[in-house]
Amino acid sequence: MSTAMPTTFTWKGVRVPYIAPWTGEIREQPRLERRPLNRGGGIAYVDEHRLYDRHAGILWLRMGAVRGVGTPILAGVNSQRQRQAMDRQLCQVCGVTTYGRADGTHLYLLAEREGGSITEGEQTASPPIHEDCAVEALRDCPHLRERAVAARVERPEPWGIAGMLHDPATLAPRPSTKRGGLTFLPYTSLKLLWAVAHLDVVSLHGCTPVNLDELLALTV
């Protein structure tokens, strides 16, 4: 496993997270078509590339991989790097592995929460994060600290994807009421045939809550 430090980019004095997309990476999405039953059924891109458009048999959003080209979209996520960060347990901010702690755990910081704590088996599309990087994120995003929770996680396990569902009859998108209109789907769901995956999702096990004030104090 490579431990090389990815290139660091800053924008207006703020470090651009590893998983953030850049305008140069945004791609026009191809037209969808129905895939023949003898090829699995569901939906496919009309010009689908077998090596790049699917991962584990699931159709994925098309996005470039030219980090640093254009302007960063700090509130967005590059689907390819997010999936890579989930698969390899890379920090969502710096892109370096989060393996190496003596206790074998990984820190997860989940935003957009109204109190409470991370629960056993909870699903998330947020990759792990280093302590220092978490402090940086909390410092640079004041609203994040107000609605975030953190936990040390022993076992992040593959669960499914967050994607855009499409109507089997019309192929029109069927957005959910969640942010971004994405639907969380486990790998066992038949609805995956009619979804375009945007994000990888894991379930969190062996969770120990982390107090954000204590986290900030430890890294001063």
Rank of each mutant, 00 (worst) to 15 (best):
F9H: 15
I43E: 07
D87N: 06
P156D: 10
S79Q: 02
E112A: 13
H205D: 09
A137M: 13
T188V: 12
T7Y: 02
G206L: 06
T219F: 00
V210S: 06
W159T: 04
E28I: 14
E120M: 11
L109Y: 06
L193A: 15
G121A: 07
P173Y: 06
V66F: 02
A197G: 08
C133I: 09
A75M: 06
H49A: 14
G163A: 04
R174E: 12
K12Y: 10
P142G: 08
H55N: 03
L216D: 04
W11V: 01
Y99N: 10
H106I: 00
D53Q: 06
A125H: 07
A4C: 04
Y18F: 15
V196H: 01
T124Y: 09
Y18M: 03
G160W: 08
V135N: 03
R81D: 01
Q29M: 10
D47N: 15
L138W: 05
L190Q: 13
W194N: 10
W22S: 02
R152G: 02
K178S: 10
H106T: 04
P6F: 04
A195W: 09
E120K: 06
G181Y: 09
V14I: 15
P21G: 02
P127I: 08
K191E: 15
S189W: 11
R34C: 06
P173V: 06
C207G: 04
L107F: 05
R15M: 07
M5G: 00
E114Y: 09
I118C: 08
P72E: 01
A150F: 14
A102Q: 13
A169P: 00
M63V: 15
V93L: 10
T3R: 12
Y99F: 15
P173R: 09
L37N: 05
D200P: 00
G100A: 07
R88H: 14
G70R: 02
L199N: 13
A44T: 14
R31V: 13
S117V: 14
P168E: 02
S126F: 11
D213F: 11
Y45G: 11
F9M: 01
D213V: 06
R67C: 03
R67G: 05
T119R: 14
M63C: 09
E146F: 09
C94M: 06
Q84I: 03
G104M: 08
V202A: 10
R147H: 15
V135E: 01
M1E: 10
S117L: 09
C207H: 02
T208K: 12
V201H: 05
S126D: 11
R113M: 15
G181K: 11
G104Y: 05
T105L: 00
A151D: 07
A137G: 05
V135Q: 03
T188M: 04
N38Q: 09
E114G: 01
A151F: 07
A111C: 08
W22M: 07
L37Q: 08
H106K: 09
A102F: 05
R50P: 02
L216W: 03
G76N: 09
T98V: 15
W194R: 03
G180A: 05
E112D: 13
S203W: 12
Q84M: 08
P156C: 13
R62L: 12
Q29K: 07
T188Q: 14
H166Y: 03
K178L: 07
E48I: 12
Y108W: 08
